[in-house]
Design a protein around this nucleic acid. Structure first.
Length: 718
RNA sequence: GGGCGUUUAGCUCAGCGGUUUAGAGCAUCUGCUUUACACGCAGAGGGCCAUAGGUUCAAAUCCUAUAACGCCCACCA
């Protein structure tokens, strides 16, 4: 391509990306020490955003830097099936055509989701490539691939056999909209709560000797009350303990019990107990099993047949209104207080979650967390910046059982089968008879696994775990047979703080349990991209900046360079489109420096001895900068490295050295000219090498024009 | 209720092993059709480094409070 005074990145970027990808330059090769990064697999729900662009740029810089240093690099790409999220977007799409998931049936619906996945995966891959990332695309994986699905089953079977996966009836977070259980981590609560009310209800004593008052934020649950609790030390209620309440609107009588969890100074000091619909209350039930449990809700949070007929089928919020009205009519409504109440919402649907007592599969996290904690405490898995070490460890220390079953269709079907007596077994492949009871298998579990279960295996499931020899039963050493030898464990994981618990912790736990190794030694946490007002970019606010649009406008290299320049030490980044001008201008500056030298290259003497003080000065500066940039990249200081190069290339090289040599370069052919051109070329060559990880296309294009070998095939300057 | 982060030029941010006039990019102002680049060149203005104390010969930089903004965790009905 010709050298216009303005650098046009678009075609150049497409050219080099395609050339290197198709030429196999991104594949792991050579004898060097392996260096591995697995990409945080983007969800197949939609397009990539700026957060991905930053995340990928950092990984690509590391990969390219190590590749130039002679390492055998592997950047493992792939995408995530993202259970609920993807099922939701496909359901929404189908709804526009008037189709409903439940009417279509499981198989027909899943066919639609697979079609969606194929389309979006292709789009995502195209976008990642457009940004110049050097993933090994021949190794593209998807969490629901055959191989990865086998990993999921193997992991499940191992944990099941070890007793770390169990089934139980517990209170779970329930999304009535998606009609599925959610893990604790999938529930979001707004700081300070949301505007709501505290209803004070009178509960009459059964013997007619008066009443007590309970306060609740969810009056509709009173139909499922099985007790009223007071603190055993509360003198006000000493005489009441053991008495019965005539539960209004029902014909049931419930006992007044004593339990420590009740705070005496809050409200009236009396708490209604609804074990089926509140975690606290369920725990009270576990301590007082005689009070019983009544589940009053259907899957969609409408009231079921356990409540009086007039309330049956009502939505929970509708029921709330009716119940309050009836209490008022009966003179049992003491008062209504306005109050900010904590409301848990599904992080996917935004729907207020309901607590629901149901049969679910859980992972016992404690033993897994112990190993993960040891890894970080003993320095084998370190976060950058360091402060995330504590953040991460605190979560591990307080880890709770993980509910892994989801009542969805899109995901890994739980590899559990039941015989005719309902006895469960877990297996890698569908069995025909139960291995222990010998009875015929009659059905497979209907539920699918939480998305993060498969994501938790990502660093080794993508690399071939478990090996061919793996069979049902607990994992053994020979399960670890990576299909790219030497690339597991991986080196660095680059991600956002938002998924440290969801993902990072689970990978470390699963890897330690299943492979006996830490999946990586370093976790680099970068900042979050915000809009220019400091708000998160989101579809609903419409404040997103599309990285692809920016790449078309400024060049992918410019976007990459600018993003890195803004992302110091994991700080959040307030972004606006004009920020990319810096990268563009910088690229153009170097482009023009090369354009200036171009007509004078013939006879350039790159081996000339530097005698002139200016020569010695620029060479010493170059040596310093090379050293500094190397050290900065090794310590993950990308912004500093970018800045160092920016100032050296623009200030020292262009403004000083090139200007100084201008007359000689423009002059008649002479040893002085040849030496001047050669000296400039030498510096520029190293600049393009140092800058190559940041701006791969521009630097390759320049080197081609200057008659230098391709950067990707050259060595990092020392 | 805990924990973390941020607060430095108009804007977005560096600087935090204490060292002479506190830096960058953008914006602003003044000159430049100088034969690489106006996505440029030469220059200029602009900051009691959130507040209050403290340590020190010396603090944006260390210590202690406070405030504002943001994020995370937590079963007060």
């Amino acid at each position: 391509m010709s050298m216009e005074s303005k650098y046009s990145p678009k075609e150049v970027e497409a050219k080099w990306e395609k050339l290197h990808r198709e030429g196999g330059a991104f594949a792991a090769s050579g004898e060097g020490k392996p260096y591995t990064i697995v990409i945080p697999p983007p969800n197949v729900t939609g397009a990539l955003h700026m957060g991905h662009a930053l995340n990928h740029t950092i990984q690509d810089v590391l990969i390219r830097f190590k590749r130039l240093q002679g390492r055998r690099t592997l950047w493992q790409p792939g995408t995530d099936h993202a259970g609920i999220a993807t099922q939701n977007v496909v359901e929404r799409m189908l709804a526009k055509e008037g189709k409903k998931r439940r009417e279509m049936g499981r198989e027909a619906f899943l066919e639609q989701v697979w079609a969606w996945k194929d389309e979006y995966e292709a789009r995502i891959v195209g976008q990642v490539q457009r940004m110049g990332n050097s993933c090994d695309w021949d190794r593209l994986r998807f969490t629901m691939d055959e191989g990865l699905s086998r990993s999921v089953r193997a992991a499940f079977v191992h944990l099941f056999e070890k007793g770390l996966i169990y089934r139980g009836k517990y209170i779970v977070n329930w999304c009535p909209k998606d009609r599925t259980a959610l893990s604790d981590d999938e529930v979001e609560t707004k700081d300070g709560g949301e505007p709501g009310h505290l209803w004070h209800l009178k509960y009459p004593l059964a013997d007619g000797s008066g009443h007590i008052i309970v306060a609740t934020t969810r009056p509709e649950t009173m139909l499922g009350d099985t007790a009223v609790a007071v603190n055993p030390k509360d003198e006000r209620y000493q005489g009441m303990i053991g008495k019965k309440i005539a539960l209004p609107l029902t014909d049931r009588e419930i006992p007044i019990i004593a339990d420590d969890f009740v705070e005496m100074d809050f409200g009236t000091g009396c708490v209604k107990v609804t074990p089926a619909h509140d975690l606290n209350d369920f725990q009270v039930f576990q301590r007082h099993p005689d009070i019983g449990v009544i589940n009053i809700m259907n899957e969609d949070a409408s009231l079921n047949e356990e409540v009086p007929a007039r309330f049956q089928g009502l939505d929970r919020f509708e029921a709330r209104k009716r119940i309050v009205v009836e209490f008022e009519e009966l003179g049992l409504l003491e008062k209504i207080e306005d109050r900010m109440t904590p409301i848990g919402r599904s992080y996917r649907s935004g729907e207020p979650i309901e607590y629901r007592l149901s049969d679910q599969w859980f992972v016992d996290m404690k033993p897994l967390a112990e190993k993960a904690l040891a890894s970080t405490r003993e320095g084998r898995v370190r976060f950058v910046p360091e402060r995330w070490n504590d953040y991460y460890c605190k979560w591990l220390e307080n880890v709770r059982p993980w509910c892994i079953s989801r009542q969805l269709w899109w995901g890994h079907r739980i590899p559990v089968w039941y015989d005719e007596d309902g006895v469960a077994c877990a297996a890698l492949e569908a069995p025909t008879v139960h291995p222990k009871t010998g009875k015929p298998i009659v059905r497979q579990d209907d539920d699918v696994l939480d998305t993060w279960f498969s994501s938790g295996l990502w660093p080794f499931s993508t690399l071939g775990w478990p090996g061919e020899g793996a069979s049902a039963g607990a994992a053994t050493e020979e399960w670890i047979q990576p299909d790219v030898p030497g690339h597991y464990p991986t080196d660095v994981l680059v991600t956002d703080r938002g998924i440290i618990f969801f993902w990072v912790a689970r990978m470390v736990m699963m890897a330690n349990e299943l492979t006996g190794k830490d999946p990586f030694h370093t976790v680099y946490i970068h900042g979050t991209i915000l809009d220019d007002k400091g708000r998160k970019m989101s579809k609903s606010l419409g404040n997103g900046i599309d990285p692809l649009e920016m790449a078309d406008q400024y060049g992918a290299d410019a976007v990459r360079f600018s993003l890195l320049n803004l992302s110091s030490e994991g700080q959040d980044i307030k972004l606006s489109p004009t920020k990319f001008e810096m990268g563009r201008n910088f690229g153009n500056k170097i482009w023009n420096a090369a354009r200036f030298l171009l007509p004078h290259l013939e006879g350039a003497d790159m081996g000339a001895v530097a005698l002139d003080p200016a020569d010695r000065w620029i060479r010493s500066r170059l040596a310093t900068v090379t050293n500094t940039v190397t050290k900065l990249l090794e310590s993950y200081k990308f912004a500093d490295a970018a800045m160092e190069l920016y100032h050296f290339a623009w200030g020292d090289f262009c403004s000083w050295y090139l200007e100084l040599r201008k007359n000689e370069i423009h002059g008649e052919d002479s040893p002085a000219k040849r030496s001047a051109v050669g000296s400039c070329l030498r510096v520029l060559s190293d600049i393009t090498m140092l800058l190559n990880p940041f701006m791969p296309a521009l630097t390759e294009e320049l080197r081609e024009h200057l008659g230098l070998p391709q950067a990707i095939q050259s060595a990092w300057p020392v």
